[in-house]
Amino acid sequence: MDAFWNVFLWGYIYSTVIAIIALTVYGMATRPHLVKKLILLSILSDTANLLAVMIGMRKGFIKPPVFPGISYTNHPVANTTQLAKFADTAVDPVPQVLVVTAIVIGLAVLVFLGYVLILLYQKYGTLDVRLLEAKITGKGGKK
């Protein structure tokens, strides 16, 4: 039963993450509309953040990485038994700290790209990459 949780369930969870990354990269390569590419780029960045958090989580490590019993006025010196119990039950806090910054930077990048798309539509009147190729280069966009 333990092998079932280890192999099958974790393999299934990581397979869904890899499948979502593959779907978004395929969609960004083949869909012709630029807003659809922007939506799929947001999903791709969120999936990368989720994968970083998922690497810091191991089997049996399920508590949030906050040491219990510490407040502003009450901060006793923890003994090694408490620290060992905390380290045995908490997830890794380093990917979570990195991902908080990455979420906000991804939002800023997407706002910039949305503004670029609005300017492209005001200049050329379309957001389809085939029509944009025909209008920018002056050649026919389809072969």
Binding site: P64, V104, L110, L117, Y121
Partner: peptide
């Protein structure tokens, strides 16, 4: 995955800001 601080950041950005940004872009374009 036991990341409550990420939940507080991501539920505002992912559900609110992304949706509002994309709807604004779609309303200005096609």
């Amino acid at each position: 995955m036991a990341a409550p601080d990420l939940v507080l950041a991501y539920v505002a950005v992912g559900v609110g800001m992304y949706t509002a940004l994309f709807l604004f872009v779609v309303s200005r374009t096609e």
